[in-house]
């Protein structure tokens, strides 16, 4: 009995740390960042840098002003900055990025208690504030690769707004599916290169940072609904999956720990809900893109999903019966 030590829980510790997980996410986002610089030019890197800088600065200032221990060391603000930048068009004025970062870090994250307490994904919160505030600047899409020719930013339509006019045949103005995969299309900085995002997603799954259930259910639901809506048009479905921010959202933003359910079935409900809302917005609403709205709506529903999918602790059934007997 000498070796028995009594100590409070937790007894099993993991070597995982917040900063380790966030570093993995940053590594997973690097391929998409490189791809975006190739596609949209160095301004993509500049915007990403500004967003990261602002997010870290706001996080630092909040800690200073509120006299709390600063949390910039866990890199979560860096991830928020990268994700917010990935959700912006490359032509966005820099001061708007600062406004978006302020909302993401101060309002969405710190007002609700900081890391792990935010009720929606900070990057998506920031993006939506910018989208409703600066709608024209947020939907001005630069044509891919033109910066290499030295031409001043020509604007283009995103594949999604072209797909909006789908009437059984695909418009000839759509980029080829190969171009969609490697990202030669109009769109936000980080969402265009599906291949780089998938590589990052696979890395996160391999490192066990995220579980594959949310991305698979999210994208799968969108695929099924699009197949039904287009009466079995596989090409249309493929365009829908590769366009917009679906892959970025499904792998990197819907999987945010504090705003997604814990249990397996909770994750399934969450992801299917995201998929349904995304599809409904894309097919029937005036907005071309619905990924960010779908994730923010399901984020808000997460506490309720948790409540209905809460696993029964061992022995709870008995306790309930006892309580009933007492009441009777």
């Amino acid at each position: 009995m000498k070796n028995l030590t009594v100590s409070p829980s937790p007894h099993v510790r993991s070597s995982e740390t917040v900063s380790g997980i966030m570093l993995d996410v940053i590594i997973a986002l690097v391929p998409a960042l490189i791809a975006s610089v190739v596609i949209f030019g160095f301004r993509a890197a500049l915007i990403t840098a500004v967003c990261i800088g602002c997010c870290v600065l706001f996080e630092f200032l909040w800690g200073k002003i509120m006299k709390k221990e600063t949390t910039i060391g866990d890199f979560s603000a860096v991830v928020t900055g990268i994700l917010l930048a990935f959700n912006l068009p490359v032509s966005i004025p820099l001061w708007m990025c600062v406004v978006g970062c302020f909302f993401a870090i101060i309002v969405v994250k710190q007002f609700f208690g900081g890391i792990g307490q935010n009720f929606v994904n900070p990057a998506i919160g920031g993006r939506i504030v910018m989208l409703v505030s600066f709608s024209s600047a947020m939907t001005r899409w630069t044509e891919p690769l033109v910066w290499q020719k030295g031409v001043d930013a020509a604007t283009t339509a995103t594949p999604l707004s072209v797909l909006k006019g789908y009437d059984g045949t695909l418009s000839s103005s759509l980029p080829s599916l190969w171009h969609m995969l490697i990202g030669v299309r109009g769109g936000c900085i980080g969402e265009v290169c599906a291949l780089a995002l998938l590589a990052g997603g696979v890395y996160l799954i391999a490192r066990k940072v995220i579980k594959p259930v949310i991305p698979l259910c999210f994208i799968g639901t969108v695929a099924v609904i699009m197949l039904i809506a287009s009466k079995g048009d596989l090409e249309f479905t493929a365009y829908q999956i590769l366009s917009g921010g679906l892959i970025l959202g499904a792998f990197f933003m819907a999987t945010d720990y504090s705003t997604s359910p814990i249990t397996f079935w909770g994750k399934v409900i969450f992801a299917v809900g995201c998929g349904i809302i995304t599809s409904v917005i894309r097919l029937y609403a005036n907005l071309p893109e619905g990924v960010s709205y779908s994730i923010i709506i399901m984020n808000i529903l997460v506490p309720h999903i948790e409540a209905i999918t809460r696993p029964k602790p061992f022995g709870e059934e008995k306790e309930k019966k006892n309580k009933k007997e007492e009441a009777a």
């Binding site: 004025p93 001061w95 309002v107 504030v129 409703v132 505030s133 600066f134 709608s135 600047a137």
Partner: peptide
């Protein structure tokens, strides 16, 4: 100055904020 108003503030969400 290259700025523009933040439309959010005159929307209902901005009111609550």
């Amino acid at each position: 100055a290259g700025l523009q108003p933040i439309t959010l503030f005159i929307l209902p969400a901005g009111g609550f904020f």
